[in-house]
Amino acid sequence: MVLLFLRQPPDPKLPIANLPSVVEVDRENASVDDLVNAIRLPTNLSRSRIKIFLASSKTVLVPDSPLNAYDLHDGTRVLVKDLGPQLSRRTLLMTAYSGPVFIHILFYYCQSWIYGSNFQHTASQIVAFTLINLHFAKRMFETMFVHVFFRITVSFYSVYFYILHYWILSGFFMAYYIYYPSCVGSPSMSAIVGSSSSSKSIANGICSSSVSLLSSSADTEETSLYFLSAVWIFAELSNFETHLILANMRLRFPRSTMPSRNVLVRRAGGDPSSQSYNLRSLSSASQLASTMVSYSARRIPKGYGFDWVSCPNYFFELVAWTMIALITRSFASLLFLTASAMQMWRKAVRKHEMYKKEFGTQYPKFRKVLIPYIK
């Protein structure tokens, strides 16, 4: 048994009322969930709102992981943070990824209602429509069957960012300009890359393709589409492989196999015997048997792509979206690619620094952040 001192971070945005000052836990048999329950009962906070981390190292205590995986001893200071209203991560991601699929289908098939005329889509528009929907279908499949999340909830307020990024930028904004019936009337990358392709009027029912990398000839256009699509397929399959590697790094086991756990909570001061009480895991046997949880000690990711950069999943996704931007030659696609690159770069730098701090000299020095051999 060890005594842990619970504190809130300095100047917390959401102060926690009735937070226990001292918690006594069985380090060998208890889990982080037991500690969360000890905090949840007196504070009336939901489990998803509670974040626990060590005051000394800022190491986060992962839900459902055993306490003996962490450096805990008598007197260890543990910080408790109220994360605010939470939303299921899978629900949020499924909502974010399904939005663009519906929006692109709407703009692709409802031509007369949106653009005021029926017209024939170009080869580049057809390919872009197919690849974009396949990408988000893949993301939804990964969310449901591949990804293993250490924290299964996210802040409720993050939904606004996801709606802006996926529904607005990759949804309405990209779809409107990618499937626009006249290449002259829509912002195009043709001015940047110097494409010589000409456009036809809506009345003719045809929008000339601007996918050609060198000229407007049909042969060059078809060759470009094949090449860009092949690179896109390679990038998406590579991205999927890196997600499998990350998921397989985490050991899965049924929660019902975990040993019986007890936690003693005691407020500081007074007679300990009169202010201590016993807490047991509150989940029912049926919930324990039906719930799968994940935990493993953090390890250095290795394998396909990880020998080059810390976040190859981000790198391959950016390659895929670059191919779509070249296929569509739309400023909308370029804007979404830029926004995605900035976001992924920020997350990749943070993860790279976390790896170096956690593993020290064991982490490969030659491994870059996001772009192989460059940065």
Rank of each mutant, 00 (worst) to 15 (best):
K51W: 02
A55L: 05
I52L: 15
V62P: 01
D71Y: 09
D64N: 14
I52R: 09
S65N: 10
F53K: 06
D82C: 05
D74G: 11
K81Y: 05
L67P: 01
K81S: 11
V80F: 05
A55M: 02
D74I: 07
L79P: 03
I52Q: 08
A69C: 12
K81I: 01
S56L: 14
V60G: 07
L54S: 10
L61T: 02
D74P: 07
V78R: 06
S57Q: 10
A69D: 14
V78Q: 02
K58E: 13
K58Q: 12
S57R: 13
P66E: 11
G84R: 01
V80M: 00
V62I: 15
A69V: 00
T76Q: 02
L67N: 03
L61W: 08
D74M: 03
H73I: 06
G75Q: 01
T59F: 11
L61I: 02
T59C: 14
D64G: 09
A69T: 00
L67C: 05
R77C: 07
H73S: 15
K58R: 15
S56Q: 14
L54D: 09
D71Q: 12
K51A: 04
T76N: 04
G84N: 03
P66G: 11
L54E: 11
K51G: 06
L79E: 14
D74A: 05
Y70A: 13
G75I: 07
S65W: 00
P66H: 09
K58Y: 13
I52V: 15
P85D: 05
